[in-house]
């Protein structure tokens, strides 16, 4: 591939204290793919995303976004954190949260204006939440909260999207809406990286996958890397293989 990769991670090692969370991870994400990061709990999936975003200082290694360090490419990247990391009883409205996606473009001190709110409303329309724009955020269901976060990322109008477990705890309608949205992002040339938990749906939703368990086990097109052997390497003995060749994690 001669194109500049959307994300290029090389030799990334991250440790919390003495405990390594990621060991020497190399990862190349080609532009325009819809990629899942899968792996067991504690595999370092969230850490990988945070390290790409510069939220965590790595012990070693380097991250490039479209060929240059994250610091200078920040505006090209949008981030959807895990839904449960914020306080949903915070006194603010749906529209206000989505408008936060514009803060990066606004920079320090400048306040969001009419244009920013219009963009936020457009993003809310894309996730089917226009009517709830003025709701207080504590009145949202889990799926609606997730869609608010997605809308906030859409407002950033980025070319690379990093999403941490957007499917966790959402209803079926929201799940379909998110899948639809992810595909539309890919169709418009965006790169999307999603931390994903449900092995059943990886092949259906994504075209690219990275298997991670402290080390990178495999990364590439889903049909190449999503093999029984790789899954076994990633999950140890905890993967049961169903008759039709689909796999599921057995607790």
């Amino acid at each position: 591939m001669s194109e500049t990769p959307a994300i290029e991670v090389s030799d990334l090692t991250v440790a919390y204290g003495a405990t390594p969370v990621l060991w020497d991870v190399d990862l190349t994400v080609p532009p325009g793919v819809l990629m899942a990061i899968v792996g067991p709990n504690g595999a370092g999936k969230t850490t990988l995303i945070k390290a790409i975003l510069g939220l965590i200082r790595p012990a070693a290694g380097r991250v490039l976004v479209q060929g240059r360090p994250y610091d200078v490419q920040r505006r090209l990247v949008a981030y959807v954190p895990q839904r449960r990391t914020v306080d949903w009883d915070f006194p603010t409205s749906v529209l206000d949260v989505v408008t936060m996606g514009r803060y990066g473009a606004l920079g320090w001190i400048r306040r969001p204006g009419r244009r920013d709110r219009r963009l936020a409303l457009e993003a809310l329309e894309q996730v089917g939440m226009t009517e709830l724009a003025h709701r207080q955020i504590s009145q949202l269901s889990g799926g609606q909260q997730q869609r608010v976060f997605l809308a906030r990322a859409l407002v950033q109008d980025a070319s690379v999207y990093l999403m941490d477990e957007p499917f966790a705890g959402v209803d079926a309608t929201t799940e379909r809406a998110i899948v639809h949205l992810l595909r539309r992002l890919r169709e418009t040339g965006r790169t999307v990286v999603v931390v994903h938990h449900d092995l059943q749906t990886v092949e259906e939703y994504f075209d690219w996958a990275t298997l991670l368990n402290v080390r990178r086990i495999a990364s590439g097109p889903v049909d190449e890397v999503f093999t029984e052997q790789n899954l076994r390497l990633t999950y140890g003995g905890r993967v049961a293989f169903l008759a039709e060749g689909r796999s599921a994690v057995v607790p």
């Binding site: 390594p20 020497d24 080390r215």
Partner: peptide, 16 residues
């Protein structure tokens, strides 16, 4: 730890 960790990282890097 920083030294040991770095040496470990080096070893793993080479092994990868």
């Amino acid at each position: 730890q920083r030294w040991e960790f770095a040496q470990g990282a080096l070893a793993i890097h080479l092994m990868q």
